[in-house]
């Protein structure tokens, strides 16, 4: 049963609180998923260590071509950040598409990743940005690439009773590069995606230098379309290429059937459409970047 609720003002204090509680305390940021899981007794904790009052974690910064998003940054803040809108509009869009404004005003982007939901919208974009997380613990700081943050379906590789993800960072897309995000959902608000896809492309003249594609929920976390990406390397910028990539993306996807959010067959049927749309939008974006 929850006995304490801490609101530390520094990362160091947060880590001490975790340590002093010997695995009984757990990090909470926005908490929008965590409190529900806690009420449903899906997670147990004696104490919550709330990091939303830690000033240094509330920032979105850009330095040396790297954008850093603090762990207390909410979806609303990310969606409205000029920095993110300018450099990674797909991420802003993904942040905007989560839940509702009342949720986005509390829920954090980093929490969306740490929570390890298979269809997390921002995580899909962060996957193509090849973001990495700054993970703090008693042992020090380490950087973990996004794809290593998932230990299984709804299972994070981060242990929130001893580790604190302080930031997430990614390299700012360059000239001739663009990102895009598309989402298929049953209504425009308060809905998890049936499918979401993010693309990032780097163009070289009339060819793809390279492209990255991430899709969800077709596996435990965002799944990269490895086969498609391979084919796209150096491929000409044509409709045929995009079409081929869309079909190849299926080889990396293993969607489940959900009675609520679409059968496996349907998801397989429309995934290429979304991949096509994401790729096309990313290319358009790259042309203007």
């Amino acid at each position: 049963m929850l006995q304490e609720y801490y609101l530390p003002h520094s990362v160091a204090d947060a880590l001490i609180l975790l340590k002093n509680n010997n695995g009984q305390a757990r990090i909470i940021a926005g908490g929008t998923d965590l409190v529900i899981d806690h009420q449903a007794e899906k997670i147990k904790a004696e104490a919550f260590v709330d990091i939303s009052n830690i000033e240094e974690l509330k920032k979105i910064e850009c330095a040396d071509g790297v954008i850093t998003i603090g762990a207390a940054v909410t979806h609303s803040e990310a969606a409205r950040s000029e920095l993110i809108q300018k450099h990674a509009p797909a991420l802003a869009m993904a942040a905007r598409s989560v839940g509702s404004l009342q949720i986005r005003n509390i829920a954090t982007v980093v929490g969306n990743v740490v929570n390890a939901q298979p269809a997390a919208d921002t995580a899909v974009v962060l996957a193509v940005l090849e973001a990495e997380a700054e993970v703090n613990s008693a042992a020090g700081v380490k950087y973990v690439p996004l794809y290593k943050m998932y230990a299984g379906v709804c299972k994070s590789a981060v242990d929130s009773t001893s580790q604190l993800v302080t930031r997430i960072r990614f390299i700012v897309p360059q000239r001739n590069q663009g990102t895009a995000f598309v989402r298929l959902c049953q209504r425009k608000a308060l809905a998890l995606p049936m499918l979401n896809v993010a693309a990032m492309v780097s163009l070289q003249g009339d060819r793809f230098a390279w492209a990255r594609l991430a899709m969800a929920p077709v596996g435990p976390g965002p799944v990269r379309a490895i086969e498609a990406e391979k084919m796209l390397r150096g491929a000409p910028l044509t409709d045929e290429t995009v079409e081929k990539a869309a079909q190849l993306a299926l080889e990396s996807a293993n969607p489940r059937s959900s009675m609520v959010r679409g059968s496996r067959e349907y998801r397989i049927g429309v995934l290429p459409v979304l991949v096509k749309r994401a790729l096309t939008a990313a290319v358009a974006r790259a042309h203007t970047n």
Binding site: G31, S100, Q102, I103, I106
Partner: peptide, 20 residues
């Protein structure tokens, strides 16, 4: 929904102590 520090939030998702 209530307004917390100028922002609309779902008060059923906010641990009371977060409102400190």
């Amino acid at each position: 929904t209530v307004i917390m520090n100028g922002k609309a939030v779902a008060s059923c998702l906010v641990p009371a102590l977060k409102a400190a």
